[in-house]
């Protein structure tokens, strides 16, 4: 009888361990090709401040796709995950990420808030997630480009580096939202203004094609969304480190 119980317990432990391994593998198996987390443009302010003051203040300005709803959503969204990843990788640097997401805002409607946050909070780096709402509302791509220019100028005027972060890859919505012109303009502006573009769309598409995440599936709980945000946070951390030419601690 004892033997049976022992075997049962051992069996349960094994399956438990296997399952734990499975989830951790699912969470880590979101490798990104190096070219998607590196940039020709560098984050000079970030490099300078981290080297001199050992601190890094980041402000994320975004819309709905910078947040996660539900219990624990805030801590699981990519800005919080970025903070965790950067703290891990930059051991003795004081990393703080402040995120302010306002839903349904176009780039033009975000510029004012971005400028205010950049001057009030004096971050070293502003990460600007935009494009989705403009695409959904069919804003004139030229007006979108103008707004991007203004936002970049506002961040730089406040003495911060800026990273543009483009829309999510959402294969189900492709026939409904035409994001391509907005993504093209973000790439073009980032080239013209020598700022870093974090290509969230291409990275998520890569995960989808590599089979890391099933982004097509009709219904998922919050689990998948949390994992994707965790992976975005870590890829974004890699991009920041690479573009600022920072060495990781580990």
């Amino acid at each position: 009888m004892k033997r049976w119980v022992a075997m049962l317990v051992a069996g349960l432990c094994l399956t438990g361990a296997a399952r734990a391994e499975e989830t951790s593998r699912a969470a880590t198996n979101c490798a990104v090709p190096p070219e998607l987390v590196s940039s020709d443009n560098s984050l000079k302010k970030v490099a300078e401040v981290v080297a001199k003051e050992r601190k890094l203040d980041i402000v994320v300005v975004g819309t709905g796709s910078s947040t996660l709803s539900g219990p624990g959503g805030g801590g699981a969204a990519y800005p919080a995950r970025l903070e965790v990843a950067l703290r891990q990788k930059l051991g003795n640097v004081d990393v703080n990420v402040f995120s302010e997401a306002q839903t349904k805002r176009t780039a033009e409607e975000m510029v004012e808030n971005l400028a205010r946050l950049a001057t009030e909070r004096r971050p070293t780096l502003v990460i600007w997630q935009t494009g989705t709402v403009d695409a959904m509302r069919g804003i004139n791509p030229d007006d979108f480009t103008t707004a991007l220019d203004e936002g970049i100028s506002a961040a730089q005027k406040a003495g911060a580096d800026i990273v543009l972060l483009n829309p999510q890859y959402s294969p189900r919505m492709e026939t409904m939202i035409s994001v391509t012109p907005y993504m093209d303009n973000m790439r073009m502006v980032s080239q013209q203004r020598d700022v870093v573009l974090f290509d969230r769309f291409a990275i998520m598409r890569h995960w989808s094609e590599a089979g890391d995440f099933d982004l097509f599936g009709a219904s998922h709980g919050l689990g998948l969304a949390k994992q994707v945000h965790d992976c975005i946070g870590r890829a974004l951390a890699d991009m920041v480190l690479n573009a600022a030419h920072l060495k990781t601690q580990n």
Binding site: T63, G64, S65, L68, S69, G70, T103, K104, T132, V133, M136, Q168, S170, R172, M173, T175, M176, I177, L215, G217, A218, S219, H220, G221, L222, L224, A225, V228, H229
Partner: peptide
């Protein structure tokens, strides 16, 4: 899109679903 609206529920795309 009516079909998608009725069958698609993914918190990752809460914002995009607003369309």
């Amino acid at each position: 899109i009516s079909y998608v609206a009725a069958h698609f529920e993914n918190p990752l795309y809460a914002e995009e679903m607003n369309i």
